[in-house]
Simulated scan of single mutants.
Amino acid sequence: MTQQVEPGPTARLGRAVGAPATVNGVVLVLPGGEPESARGPSPWAYAAARPLARELAAAGGSEGLAVHLVRYRGRGWNGGAARLAADAQWAVEEVVRRYGDVPVCLAGLDMGGRAALRAAGHEAVGPVVALAPWLPGGAADEEPVRQLVGRQVLIVHGTDDGRADPELSFRLAERVKKANRDTCRFEVHSDGHGMRQHRGEVRALVADFVLGSLFGRPYARAVADALAAPPPLGLRMPLASGFGAGGRS
């Protein structure tokens, strides 16, 4: 069990995107943030995260998937306070309180990706997705990884990311893979931080991974190959153009 987290009265779950009659699994989408800030949550970060939430809700509605955006207390990670990770941990506890014994996926963008990886220790958490995870210099060698043992981990990063260094996420993925075989990382070549040029492929990849991990659907071949491949192959898997279009790749 993880330590109880009390993030305060302003952290909350947004309204569920999609409302299945019976909830069999939950995705918590974690928006980005800033390294240091006392300001409130960023409306831009939530707007950037909503399309992924809608995509996952549409893909998993028939399975009973509920998707929530996590509403942080503020936008700052703030050093050792790791506030975004604390709010993510609180959100998992809140899902358990609302829905009971259902599997939970943490899916984060930017600094929300770091929060997803950091907050994965709760026993309800299964799959963890980090899209272009932001890490400060040196953190790739210092971030904890033991909380990811027994989870299914997907990291996706654009090779031309100018905000969050993709080599840092690769180094972190190497450490995670040593502790947990069920780890893969995809590279989106010639794309930037938001991976906008290949947004359709990225969302299809995430949906395939999440539904496969939560509900036992067979993974697309590329995902299965990436999970099975030894490093560095399974941690530098190129995301094929057209992934998910007209069928599974």
Rank of each mutant, 00 (worst) to 15 (best):
C184G: 01
R181F: 11
G192Q: 05
R185Y: 10
R203Q: 15
M195T: 12
N180G: 03
V210A: 11
A173G: 07
N180C: 12
S190I: 00
G192W: 03
M195F: 09
R199T: 15
H193R: 00
K178Y: 04
G194K: 06
R199Y: 10
R203T: 11
V188C: 08
R175G: 05
S190W: 12
E187I: 09
C184A: 09
R203M: 13
R181W: 09
H193A: 07
R196I: 11
R199W: 12
A173H: 01
F186E: 09
H193W: 03
L172Q: 09
K178W: 03
V188G: 08
V202H: 10
L205R: 04
G192P: 02
S190D: 15
A173Y: 02
V206E: 10
R175V: 02
R196L: 15
A204R: 08
D182M: 02
K178V: 13
N180Q: 14
F209M: 01
D182V: 00
Q197M: 11
R196V: 12
E187W: 15
E187G: 12
E187L: 14
V188K: 08
A173E: 00
G192I: 02
E174D: 00
V176M: 06
K177F: 08
E174I: 01
E174F: 05
V202T: 14
D191F: 05
A173D: 01
V210Q: 11
H198C: 13
D208G: 09
A179T: 06
N180Y: 07
V188T: 10
V210I: 12
S190T: 10
F186G: 04
R185S: 12
L205E: 06
S190A: 15
E174A: 03
F186A: 08
L205T: 05
D182G: 01
D208L: 09
G194L: 00
N180V: 05
R185N: 11
L172A: 08
A204T: 01
D208R: 09
D182H: 06
S190P: 00
Q197H: 11
D182I: 00
A204I: 03
D208H: 11
H193Y: 06
Q197E: 14
T183G: 02
